[in-house]
Simulated scan of single mutants.
Amino acid sequence: MLLDPRAPRFAAAVTTVVLAAALLGGGTPLLLVQAVVFAITAANPRLGPYGLLYRTLVAPRLAAPTELEPAAPVRFAQLVGLIFVGAALVGQLAGLPVLALVATSAALAAAFLNAAFDLCLGCVGYLALRRLVGRPLAARVPAGS
């Protein structure tokens, strides 16, 4: 499955807003919502709520993408995000505010880097792992390939 790379970047922008709001006082409810979004998107990026918003509201107003990206790195990145938000939730629920703060901040930083600079840390990690095991994967391919 290939994806328009602008969809995960849009999702990262929404995630940045959600996680910033969680840090500013939204806490557990926002982290729970974001965890569900990460879980759905890790299972299937095409079903992710933020991706659906992108395809419904934003993509029709844009030209077709010039390149596409494989879904596997995006799924891996969403799983990593889920792990960090899960750790933040554990911190919130166990009365460990430092754990909650650090885990939420790390997830926020990664989402911001993707949204602002098109640098997906989870995707980079996935591609590095693939190279390490001798099964490299192209990060992006020309559309129509």
Rank of each mutant, 00 (worst) to 15 (best):
A11C: 12
D118T: 03
A21M: 15
A106R: 00
V124S: 04
G26L: 12
G122P: 02
C120M: 04
A128Q: 03
A107E: 04
T56R: 15
A128S: 02
L2I: 09
A111T: 02
G86S: 10
T56G: 09
F10E: 09
L31A: 08
L68P: 02
L19H: 13
G25L: 14
L93A: 05
T41C: 06
N44F: 07
V85H: 05
A111H: 01
A43T: 12
L82W: 14
L79I: 03
D4R: 14
A20M: 13
E67M: 08
A138C: 01
Y54H: 12
F117E: 04
V58I: 15
V17Y: 12
V98F: 11
T66L: 12
A111D: 01
A143Y: 00
A43L: 12
L93R: 09
V133H: 02
I40H: 05
A64I: 01
A87E: 03
R6C: 09
P97D: 10
G125H: 05
T66P: 01
R6D: 09
A21F: 14
A12S: 14
L93T: 08
L93K: 05
V33G: 11
L24P: 07
T41D: 07
Q92Y: 06
M1S: 13
D4P: 10
I40S: 07
A39L: 14
A64N: 04
R135C: 00
L30H: 10
R6K: 14
D118C: 00
S105E: 02
L57W: 13
V124T: 07
V18C: 11
G48I: 11
L53E: 05
A87C: 15
S105W: 06
L47Q: 15
V80T: 10
P142L: 00
P97A: 06
L113W: 09
A12D: 10
A12N: 12
A128D: 02
A109R: 04
L23K: 12
A42E: 07
A103W: 06
A115E: 06
L57C: 10
A7M: 13
V85T: 13
L101P: 01
L47S: 13
A77R: 02
R140Q: 04
Q92D: 10
A72G: 05
V58M: 06
P70Y: 04
A63G: 14
V74W: 04
R75I: 02
G25D: 12
A107R: 04
R131G: 02
P29I: 11
A7H: 12
F117L: 13
Q92H: 14
S145F: 00
L3E: 09
A143F: 00
E67S: 14
L57E: 03
A103K: 05
V98K: 04
A115I: 06
P49T: 09
A138S: 02
V133K: 03
R46Q: 12
R130L: 00
F10R: 10
V133P: 02
A59C: 08
Q34V: 06
Q78N: 15
S105T: 15
R135P: 00
A128Y: 01
V17A: 15
R9H: 11
L127I: 03
P29E: 11
P45V: 08
